[in-house]
Design a protein around this nucleic acid. Structure first.
Length: 493
RNA sequence: GGCGGCGUACCCAAGUGGUUAAGGGAGAGGUCUGCAAAACCUCGAUUCGUCGGUUCGAUUCCGACCGCCGCCUCCA
């Protein structure tokens, strides 16, 4: 089996993944750019988190212990330039008459709920003051890590790559780019960029490329902290990722993920900050996901005029995991054209897998060994996942496996399928548990009994009426050889 | 102006320098079924935006062109 391979934006090549830790049971460190919590995360955002989750699962599939950190941006992300714009969180807070903390908490809760619905496993919340023993993995908030940011800024300043002005502390890009080759990631030399051409920038900056590490003298900004020796203010956007990545995972990490849009500015700046502070490599593998497109034109009930969110799908009676499956149907580095029809098509696949699992005999599930022929599928699946996360192919293998089981009338593939699902995250096991419960509300039980009677009496008119009634209550009704099957529709999580 | 990407059947979407270009959805026909659903079987691109070039051979490499898109300003 080929080792895990991943496309590294630093080299623009698919490379074998070699973590820093070369022990027999290696750990991989993984930092993901997380949400800015001032609006609901739209489906494009969620695609990125499905990607992050899939990558984490693929690493674990390959035997790595993953230390995963995701940040939550709850301060410092401005609507335009660092010094000209408005803080996104505060803008929403003012609009809604809430405090920034309330806004952040509200959207964090929503984000977590959406991730849960998509079966995205987030790292546990970081305890704010666990300075002495930072956790191995963490979901961490920028506002809980201000001291760490100040520490990195001080390091940068100590190495001479920061300067302080009345409006803030800036990173000296001109000074840094010589030794660093800044622009490697985006393949853009600074002279080729038109930075500052289309927007006002602070007169304090020595160069329009410079960016704020710490912003000073913004009395209207609600969230402010003391920077000893510098003054009261708040951090620039990029510094949080450098600081939290280093704090929780170390000065050099294995993988750093984010959207393609982060390459030219955010990640270039992160590299500059981190490497000027520590003097050595910040990230070994940068991975970037492509966008979900076509959302603006997607005609979903409530989404007119904005990007659709997961709730819009639920409103259309589409299960969230159908969206996850849609994402898996395209490579993470390819744009994926979103449409309601595309999600519905994905939902068919989800139902197909669920239906197979539902029909499995308990003794097949309990059986410790799968049919011998399933092994070839597992190999193909692993191969696909290790080839730069080729989820479309892996998914095809899973579907082919199920089709082969049907065709050969040999259903002994549950363990293989469960292994696939540990990577795909479609919660097939949850489906089995759900079915095992088999408990229905009294009203549904009554309707079921009545319908069985009607069918036995060949009163099909009544039978069809009862089916319609049961379905209206959110259940599916199927007549099989073994009799009537009623199950909850998989809509709301 | 600069950087980057994409164009594969009605739709979504993999893939490869050379035997039949994955998989799914939709569609057509059939089996099964009280009906429906599910499942199964069969069919479906002589062709990979266009035109050139390299090659014994290109959808895959190179060039030009056309079309679409992202970024260079916040953005997954």
């Amino acid at each position: 089996m080929k080792p895990f391979h991943i496309f590294n934006s630093l080299t623009r090549a698919v490379e074998p993944f070699m973590p820093l830790d070369t022990s027999p049971t290696p750990t991989a460190t993984f930092y993901s750019c997380g949400p800015t919590v001032y609006l609901p995360q739209h489906l494009g955002n969620m695609r990125a988190y499905v990607f992050v989750d899939t990558l984490r699962r693929a690493l674990e599939f390959n035997g790595y212990t993953v230390r995963h950190v995701m940040n939550i941006t709850d301060v410092g992300h401005m609507t335009s330039d660092e010094d000209a714009g408005e803080d996104k969180i505060e803008k929403t807070a003012r609009a809604e008459g809430k405090s920034p903390l309330e806004v952040a908490n509200f959207y964090i809760a929503q984000f977590k709920r959406d991730c849960a619905a998509l079966n995205i496993a987030l790292p546990i919340d970081a305890v704010p003051d666990a300075v002495a023993h930072p956790p191995q993995s963490a979901l961490c908030r920028a506002t809980d890590n201000i001291p760490a940011m100040i520490g990195v800024i001080e390091q940068i300043a100590a190495h001479g790559y920061a300067y302080t002005t009345p409006s803030g502390v800036y990173f000296d890009v001109e000074k840094w780019r010589g030794p660093s080759g800044m622009g490697r990631l985006s393949r853009q030399s600074l002279s080729e960029q038109h930075a500052g051409q289309r927007l006002e920038h602070s007169a304090d900056k020595r160069s329009p490329h410079d960016f704020a590490l710490w912003v000073l003298n913004q009395p209207h900004h609600m969230m402010q902290w003391d920077f000893p020796g510098i003054g009261r203010g708040y951090p620039g956007w990029h510094i949080e990722c450098s600081a939290m990545s280093m704090r929780y995972l170390g000065e050099t990490i294995d993988i750093h993920s984010g959207g393609l849009d982060h390459i030219p500015v955010h990640h270039e700046n992160e590299i500059a900050q981190s490497e000027s502070a520590t003097g050595h490599q910040f990230v070994r593998y940068f991975v970037h996901n492509a966008f979900l497109t076509g959302m603006a034109g997607a005609k979903i009930s409530k989404s007119a005029g904005r990007f659709p969110v997961l709730d819009d799908l639920v409103e259309e009676k589409i299960h969230p995991l159908a969206f996850r499956l849609l994402c898996l149907g395209a490579k993470y580095r390819s744009e994926l054209a979103f449409s309601i029809d595309a999600v519905r098509a994905a939902e068919k696949n989800l139902n197909y897998l669920n239906e197979f699992v539902r029909c499995l005999q308990p003794r097949v599930i309990a059986n410790a060994h799968d049919a011998a022929w399933a092994g070839a599928y597992e190999e193909r699946f692993h191969e696909a996942m290790n080839n730069d996360l080729n989820t479309p192919q892996a998914l095809a293998v899973a579907l082919e496996l199920v089709a082969a089981a049907y065709r050969q009338n040999d259903h002994r593939i549950w363990h293989t399928l469960r292994i696939f699902d540990m990577v795909l995250g479609l919660d097939l096991e949850g489906r089995i548990k759900e079915i095992a419960k088999g408990v229905f509300p009294p009203r549904i039980n009554r309707l079921m009994t009545e319908r069985e009677k009607a069918r036995a009496a060949k009163d099909f008119k009544r039978s069809d009426e009862l089916r319609a009634e049961i379905e209206l209550s959110g259940y599916e009704v199927k007549d099989t050889k073994a009799g009537m099957v009623v199950m909850p529709k998989r809509v709301a999580p």
